[in-house]
């Protein structure tokens, strides 16, 4: 029998195992998609009806059980401010640590930093919340800034890892081309390496924003004692969408429940759109880099 014949028993068994594993993996992948689908549909069914302009333009009406227009404008503004500031804090730190990790650190230091980023990535959000509470809130009280700081801690490892992965793909020859001109390493990094990674930085940031926009636990400690007025000032504690969802879910007023579902639908849609955009951007920048090699 030829060595390439398909009729040996071992081969047949291996084929069967292979097919079984493939089926299990496919089923698991489908299960994930199905869970997401069911979640989106059920949130949409319950919240869809309550999505109207008032939701975004009006603050909560002071009384429950009223037909007066009511909305969550303060929560959307609060989340936008908190996440916006968190992004502004996390992007420079994340990108710079990725640059240091990939371009400057010696092997051992790089290993430590990568490890630290991974651990940070795994720290539960509530632990970050308590940490920021003890560090800032205990002394200065709650504020959107404290909330942003907590969220930025969650964003940094995501942004840093996304950036570092693409920095590692930039060919060494590109760096050498610049260094051989007598250009410093910093100038080389900023001038010829970093421009190739902008796409990845945007992608990583978008994913990180999507990830923290719905975070509740860190804000519970840092920005939860809030009124219903529309506020922009980050020195004050600001309302946020996830906390409002939690609060309304406990309300006796069914209209509040509907608004909580509506807010959840907005949040989930935002995450979906952001993730899809991020994937598209990532695919595009990878294609571009492919050209470079």
């Amino acid at each position: 029998m030829s060595a390439l014949s398909a009729n040996t028993d071992g081969l047949r068994r291996r084929r069967a195992v292979n097919r079984l594993m493939e089926a299990i993996a496919t089923a698991a992948a489908f299960a994930a998609v199905v869970v997401l689908g069911i979640m989106v549909v059920s949130v949409a069914r319950r919240g869809g009806a309550a999505i109207d302009l008032n939701l975004f333009t009006k603050t909560p009406h002071p009384f429950s059980f009223t037909n007066q227009p009511s909305g969550l404008a303060n929560a959307f503004v609060g989340t936008a401010v908190i996440v916006g500031i968190a992004t502004a804090m996390a992007v420079p730190v994340g990108v710079l640590s990725a640059i240091y990790l990939n371009e400057f650190a010696r092997a051992r230091v790089a290993f430590l930093i990568a490890l630290a980023l991974d651990v940070l990535n795994g720290v539960p959000a509530i632990v970050v919340g308590i940490f920021v509470f003890a560090l800032i809130v205990v002394h200065h009280g709650q504020s959107a800034l404290a909330g942003s700081f907590a969220l930025s801690i969650l964003m940094i490892p995501l942004i840093a890892r996304a950036t570092q992965e693409v920095l590692a793909l930039v060919p060494q020859a590109t760096r050498e081309g610049s260094l051989a001109l007598g250009v410093s390493r910093w100038r080389t990094t900023l001038g010829v390496v970093l421009p190739q990674t902008i796409g990845a930085i945007v992608t990583g940031t978008t994913l990180a924003v999507a990830r923290v926009a719905g975070e509740t636990a860190p804000l519970l400690f840092t920005s939860s004692i809030v009124g219903d007025r529309l506020q922009w000032n980050p020195h004050l504690a600001l309302a946020s969408v996830p906390l409002k969802i939690f609060e309304y879910s406990e309300s006796p007023d069914p209209a509040d429940h509907a608004r909580a579902w509506a807010a959840a639908l907005v949040l989930i849609s935002f995450v979906l759109v952001a993730s899809i955009t991020a994937r598209a951007l990532a695919a595009r920048s990878r294609r571009r880099m492919g050209l470079h090699r």
Binding site: T174, G177, A180, G182
Partner: peptide, 15 residues
Amino acid sequence: RRRIGMVFQKPNPFP
């Protein structure tokens, strides 16, 4: 390297 430049085996233009 400012005084002593280099051209490499594989062309490596910047993107």
